[in-house]
Write a protein that binds this DNA or RNA. Structure first.
Length: 519
DNA sequence: TGAAATGTTGGGGCG
DNA sequence: ACGCCCCAACATTTC
């Protein structure tokens, strides 16, 4: 009797959760469920998954596999080309339907289209769903019917539209029976195992750690999912990230609850303070889909309806969520967003090529404390406060005049929340070449930004220990301090901490000149 | 979701 | 009481 139930493959990607997962809900209702995650590696992929994201994905998958296993539905893991793996799995399980959640990046959409075509040609039903966004990329349009290129009208259109309620976790799930070859033990179900190349920014014997950080004493990885080779080795810097982040759907929901009960009310102002815990820190969970934007949106709406005094903070927070939405909207409609400036004139911009300056920026050794603190927070925790992201990005693009794509690539490899759309759109925004971008001449002064948003210097001291003997706003320009003050703090500029690699005022003039000459 | 230079306004001290 | 100056606070302009 049960053998007659239809079987559905749920191809999971960046929707690694049970709740608010329409594809999974559809499959559960339909019959037997075979959830599968494929570590995709495409020849010529310009954006192979970064090292930090691989680490984060590993731990997210570990959590998800446990959740599935508790429900008696083993998560299948594969490594390679979905175009060959999915038909194999269909054959193996007798599935007659494959479902997945849509994505917005160009390569992903190309792969999905090819997979759908091949499966449909083989007589398999294929359905795709929206799990990652509040709206379909084509649902929000201007009055003329085209894509939005300006954020404010886009956000207004979103606020005016209806956002679907999250889909609940399927009440009941039936797994494929008998289990796939290899038994029920998670680790025995993995295939493949060729170590994938990342961009190679994270340290390896070839690529020693920046900023003199010592990774050698960090604990080894857990060994789960080992054949996907997601965890770093030689050295294993993953333990460093472990201190800061707990992966998975449960951790995501917990963090959402903490944020709504805590930081949300004062979000409007506190979100700009990297020395405070004022942001949601949900981006790593959103990036892998351990939580979905609809869940966040509705949780915030519910809190607004039941509590006084949080409306102002909540509105700003929801707008941040809509920036993410806007980024995906842009990536969908402008697939070259990660590589090419949306404003074509910027292709003529005369950038500098300085390996030394790029390395100083990456290592957090520019001599500007707020910039260095940000870059080291990124390295040490896989995450950076949003205000500081803008500061360091402005510094790379405007002060160092280095192409924004190089900053984008570094962030892609080092962020655990790396998202093609948000990363590309945000770098273009700072560079001034994107949609609705900050004008190019809007140059952040790293000293003023530091004084304004890290007034006591607590953030800098946390990530730049060389300066921990200094305090107060003056810490943001150590080269202006007296010799005595520096000596007392144990700072010798040029020795214990770098002198600024560029003079900001001169660099700003240089940037404006380069911009003016070419635009 | 800049910064700095420049312009304007208005309150208060003072002769 | 009045005009004058100073200057902080705010607004506008420019890059």
């Amino acid at each position: 009797m049960t053998e007659t139930l239809p079987t559905t493959l749920v191809w999971l990607r960046r929707d690694l959760r049970l709740a608010d997962n329409p594809a999974l809900a559809f499959a559960a209702q339909r019959g037997r469920v075979v959830p599968v995650y494929i570590l995709e590696e495409s020849e010529g992929d310009p954006w192979p998954m970064g090292g930090a994201m691989r680490w984060w994905l590993h731990h997210t998958l570990t959590d998800l596999a446990e959740r599935f296993e508790k429900l008696g539905v083993p998560l299948v893991l594969r490594h390679g080309d979905p175009l060959t793996i999915l038909p194999e799995l269909v054959q193996e399980t007798g599935a007659d339907c494959v479902v997945f959640s849509r994505r917005t990046d160009a390569l992903g959409r190309t792969v999905d289209a090819a997979v759908e075509k091949a499966l449909v040609a083989a007589g398999i039903e294929v359905k795709s769903f929206n799990a990652s966004l509040l709206f379909e990329s084509w649902d929000i349009t201007t009055k003329a019917g085209g894509p939005f290129k300006v954020y404010t009208p886009f956000s207004k259109a979103c606020f005016a539209a209806t956002i679907d309620a999250p889909v609940p976790v399927p009440k009941k799930m039936r797994g494929y029976h008998p289990p796939l070859a290899g038994g029920s033990k998670l680790r025995q179900q993995f295939r493949g195992g060729v170590k994938a190349p990342s961009l190679g920014f994270y340290p390896s014997p070839k690529n020693p750690s920046p900023a003199g950080l010592d990774f050698s004493t960090l604990p080894q990885g857990e060994g789960d999912l080992s054949s996907l080779s997601l965890l770093p080795t030689h050295p294993d810097w993953g333990g460093m990230l472990h201190v800061h982040w707990k992966a998975g759907e449960g951790a995501a929901l917990k963090r959402l609850g903490q944020f709504i009960g805590g930081g949300l009310a004062a979000y409007k102002t506190m979100r700009d303070r990297p020395d405070q815990d004022g942001t949601s820190c949900l981006s790593p969970y959103l990036a892998v889909g351990a939580i979905g934007p609809r869940q966040i949106w509705h949780a915030v709406q519910n809190a607004m309806a039941s509590r006084q005094g949080i409306a102002a903070g909540a509105e700003v927070f929801l707008k941040e969520l809509l920036w993410r939405e806007f980024s995906h909207h842009l990536l969908y409609h402008f697939p070259h967003l990660p590589e090419k400036p949306l404003q074509a004139a910027f292709a003529q911009m005369k950038w500098r090529r300085s390996k030394a300056d790029l390395a100083a920026w990456q290592k957090g050794m520019t001599g500007y404390p707020i910039v260095d603190a940000g870059m080291r927070q990124l390295w040490q925790t896989g995450w950076m406060h949003n205000r500081v992201r803008m500061i360091v990005a402005s510094f790379l693009i405007k002060d160092l005049l280095i192409p924004w794509q190089q900053g984008e690539a570094w962030f892609w490899d080092t962020l655990i929340d790396s998202d093609m759309a948000s990363n590309a759109a945000s770098w273009q925004w700072v560079a001034g070449c994107g949609a609705d971008a900050a004008p190019f001449f809007r140059v952040f002064n790293p000293v003023l930004q530091g004084k304004k948003f890290d007034p006591d210097g607590a953030y800098v001291r946390r990530f730049v220990p060389e300066l921990s003997g200094l305090q107060g706003p003056a810490l943001h320009a150590p080269w202006l301090l007296s010799h005595e003050a520096l000596a007392q703090a144990g700072v010798t500029l040029g020795k214990t901490y770098p002198t600024p690699i560029v003079d900001h005022a001169a660099a700003q003039q240089r940037a404006l000149a380069a911009f003016k000459g070419k635009m």
